[in-house]
């Protein structure tokens, strides 16, 4: 899908703490960037010494400020390399390409109150949402858990009804009591590590919070796995997916025009019909239903992989 990209220049690189760095992008032509809303992300393209990396990052700046976009990146030393590239090689003045903003984690305007639950780098979308709500005077509250005060990004800048928790100091979000005392009409938003998401999901369900009032940011970074081959029936190509590349990235590397938006198994844009699968699809997305996953009739190439004899998909 050949969608227009945004040509930007890196304006600022600020080390927030040992693991986290903030980047600010401005339009190369000096103009305003497209408007976005809190919770939106952009896909940042990186030319990492021959490997093209495309990672989604939440916009953490003020949605009212169209003179630049800010992202906040946590260095993941065990990851596939995108965050390490951002930390080591991106410097002010550098020209980069990013996607238009896409929002898969928007504020729900029906809420009477917005309750934010952040774990670690999960603070990024909430920073933008808090800016947005502050402009309209809506009611919000943030509960932000990090490992220790030194790793609490933006802790000094977040003003208002903000509560901090630190694992190392054995202080944890009192989730059950917190959710139990919320007034009717509260919408809950959670962004953090996988364990936190399932903790919040289970506790909210147990207390009877309406399912559609609990929102999750569920990007999954593509996990490496065994290499495999895939036949693309529409393109008429058979390509190889190496262990450290996703199926979507392998298609792109082979010049196949494949649609995408989130690259994290959440948006559904890259969904492909499976023509033939002799083996097992390792579904790792949050998009397909359990029935669809079990039927092996569809695959999300941004995060899911395949193990077995042969795979053919409609692309």
């Amino acid at each position: 899908m050949s969608v227009a990209k945004l040509l930007v220049r890196v304006a600022e690189v600020e080390k927030i703490n040992d693991l986290i760095t903030r980047f600010r992008f401005v339009a190369r032509d000096g103009g305003l960037l497209p408007a976005f809303s809190g919770g939106a992300h952009v896909v940042v393209e990186m030319e990492d010494h021959g490997t093209r990396r495309m990672n989604p990052y939440s916009l953490s700046g003020d949605p009212e400020d169209r003179t630049g976009y800010e992202i906040t990146v946590r260095r993941d030393d065990a990851g596939r390399g995108g965050s390490i590239y951002m930390h080591r090689h991106v410097s002010p003045g550098m020209e980069m390409v990013i996607s238009h903003p896409v929002n898969l984690f928007p504020l729900d305007g029906r809420a009477k109150k917005h309750l934010f639950l952040a774990g670690g780098i999960g603070i990024t979308p909430f920073k933008a949402m808090i800016h947005q709500l502050s402009h309209i005077g809506a009611k919000w509250e943030l509960h932000y858990a990090t490992r220790n005060p030194a790793l609490c990004a933006y802790g000094d800048q977040l003003k208002g009804p903000v509560h901090f928790y630190y694992d190392d100091l054995k202080s944890f979000i009192p989730l059950r009591d917190l959710l139990a005392r919320q007034p009717l009409g509260t919408h809950v938003y959670c962004c953090g590590p996988k364990g936190m998401l399932s903790w919040v999901r289970a506790t909210a369900a147990e207390l009877g919070l309406p399912e559609h009032s609990v929102h999750f940011e569920e990007f999954t970074a593509p996990q490496p796995g065994a290499p495999f081959d895939v036949e693309l029936t529409l393109t008429g190509k058979t390509i190889h997916v190496p262990s450290h590349q996703s199926l979507l990235e392998a298609m792109e590397a082979n010049g196949v025009d494949a649609p995408y938006l989130c690259r994290g198994g959440a948006c559904g844009q890259c969904e492909c019909q499976v023509v033939k699968a002799e083996g097992q699809i390792l579904h790792r997305d949050h998009w397909l239903t359990d029935e669809e996953k079990a039927s092996n009739s569809k695959i999300m190439p941004c995060v899911s992989r395949f193990e077995g004899r042969s795979l053919a998909i409609e692309r």
């Binding site: 029906r110 009477k112 959710l179 919320q182 009717l184 919408h187 009877g208 309406p210 559609h212």
Partner: peptide
Amino acid sequence: KAGTQCYLAGSEGLIGQAERDLMAQGVPHQ
């Protein structure tokens, strides 16, 4: 509180008006 389950039963007029008032409080209709 947010953990309130809402159940409506009877005629459409009553169900609809109670749903409208709950929605106005931020409860998702679904």
